[in-house]
Design a protein around this nucleic acid. Structure first.
Lengths: 215, 215, 215, 215
DNA sequence: CATGAATGAGCGTTCATTCAT
DNA sequence: GATGAATGAACGCTCATTCAT
């Protein structure tokens, strides 16, 4: 089974495809035993290229880690953004975003786990993820539905709960319900009344997946 | 300056003291550049023993990591337990526990960071920490002050926010206020009304430190 | 700025020009960090061709090293020969040759250093340089101005002092005077009376440069 | 056949002996194909230890190169110094020193060649060798037997001719006579009249050898 | 001829681990 | 127990070289 990065560049030049294969293999290995434990030899082997080939595409391991982590984060952000383009309500947007984020991450566990592991070693990635989340929080405050002050700390706490969701879903065998439940807890954290938080976060939605279920 | 494990076994046999010195040195090195980057040679050197001696006390590095992490967790638990022995109110206990936990961890950053890094690779450690936290959550539910259902997920979310506090405090330069603020957010998560949550979590308390300030 | 080999083949076929560009780039890289440290990728890149192209022009790195070193040696020999075509006196010829050799080498440090480094690993190159120098030594003996027996050893010593000059001039920051001073020492080595040696070697001459100063 | 460094530490601790074995092996490999071409794996293998052992004794290759080169230089200096302790005449001292230096170097070709190769990459080594040579040159000037001005350049030229002797003797198969002949040339370079230069440099002496001939 | 992605042996170096003393 | 020299597999990375396009 080829990876997601590879699928996205099907038909492009050889170099681009090899690079994508390496990124897929890297995500796989990062998820297995952590980023540090993933050796470049193992990644190259999993990508079916020789170790030397790796260095035709990435200066070093750090560059690879960055490319993979930011690649995943942007992919998630774009998918979620697109899927909630016509949702205006901040409460809906936040709960939808959290649920889809957790679900996307668990639909491709190697991606979810890579992201989770990278976020602690790449401050820039943390900022990127945080700023993505923040927009809707600010909107909710403006609209008067979030009765809290939104500061950096609150955003970090939202993120930590979201990541815990990814962890439980990908590493602890949690089921798809945790997304909704975490979204509900987050809404309460934002000052949304419990009943509305529950209702909003459990509203049935079509869950995204990195790969179409049929593939 | 001798480490905390060493202080706790002062007066015991030489073997016990050597083991403790190794654990102190390990915590130090773990915090410096991460657990994986800490070499046993460097730990042994920092503990002022030869590298071979290490293997008289630990089967391998994993055993050391476990011993250090559990040692730290138990130390924290005992200190916090003792310090809140005469607090009965669950609201107070939870906010006190969180604040002290974050503060203890940041009073000895090498311990806090070691704990944070180990918690994701040692499921048993996570369970231990969770079960420690859970007791007071259940008490609050029984007492009717936490108007939520306490399940494993909620405990995990509490833990993730607490660990985020440790991270911000030890790695991102956050000040001592984050402890109180995180406690406040946690109380709201538990269904405590905002005003009370704020009041309870900002009540002045005497913050613990792994080492007495005078030492 | 194009290199000297390239300039000498301006107007010739494309293949010849590519080969010359590679040789210029090689001399540049050899001088920068030594022959061994110069990678073929880096040389090809500096020559603005792909790495594969290199192997259309040279069997391997050794062949390149040889081509560059002999190319430089011949270039120097031709320039010096031409410049002293109308000098008959052996004393003058030797001192002129040494001074120009050192000055040429330092006017294009990458060439001088490449030559210096190659001379110890390419015996044939050493012989070539030696035989070039030898002609005038024999002439001086025939003319009775060099009162020594000229044998292989003496030629080697002359060469070693000349190369020391190149080294001092290109690697140790020595000024243009060393050429004259070394020539003077060499003349004394050849049995020329000190006063004459001094006079002959310090006579003002127009120093050559690999590239015309105006270019 | 064990190496010279090893012989000098026979009977000392294991660590010292292993270090000496590594230095002997290194000199051997340095001489074979140059310092850069000598891999640490090959050196360790030649010393009959595993590659990892190398790093228990030297921080890196540079440290090894330094230890070997300075070790050899000091050994030579001490032997020569001792052997000419009772020679007062500067003319004798210079010619004796040069002849013994070249002979010592060729009695242990791997040492001579290592020294020759290291001298161009270790400026400190060049300075050390130069300063050793300089003392007798200054003495000769004071005594009025060297009728030249002794400056850095002259010392460098003396050195370059001496090293050429080592090269010819160890790499080009030159016989033991070159030592005397080079010494003669050097004396003339120092302004000693040809006849005296010849006489002084060809006086029969007992040539040193790094190892006693019988071993 | 030129290209440049791919190769894989080899490099210097690290490190958990063993074991004779 | 404690020592510390020795081990050797594994690491990240480089580079001369090949070859399909």
């Amino acid at each position: 089974m080829t990876g997601v990065f590879a699928e996205r560049v099907r038909g492009e030049g050889k170099s681009v495809r090899t690079r994508a294969r390496l990124m897929d293999a890297a995500a796989e290995k990062f998820a297995e035993h952590g980023i540090e434990a993933a050796s470049i030899n193992a990644i190259a082997h999993a990508a079916d290229v020789s170790n030397g080939t790796f260095y035709n595409h990435f200066r070093d391991k750090d560059e690879l880690v960055g490319a993979v982590a930011f690649g995943i984060a942007r992919d998630f952000a774009e998918r979620i953004d697109a899927a909630m383009a016509d949702i205006d309500d901040a409460v809906q947007r936040v709960s939808f975003g959290t649920r889809q984020f957790i679900e996307l991450a668990s639909s491709e566990p190697s991606w979810g786990q890579s992201l989770m592991r990278a976020v602690w070693s790449l401050p820039a990635l943390r900022r990127e993820v945080a700023s993505f989340a923040r927009a809707d929080l600010d909107r909710g405050v403006r609209d008067g539905v979030f009765r809290v002050e939104v500061d950096d700390l609150l955003v970090d706490l939202m993120m930590s709960t979201g990541l815990m969701g990814v962890y439980l879903r990908t590493s602890e065998g949690a089921g798809p319900k945790v997304g909704a439940e975490i979204a509900e807890h987050q809404l309460r954290l934002l000052g949304v009344p419990p009943a509305r938080a529950h209702r909003a976060s459990h509203r049935p939605i079509e869950l995204l997946a990195v790969r179409p279920p049929q593939a």
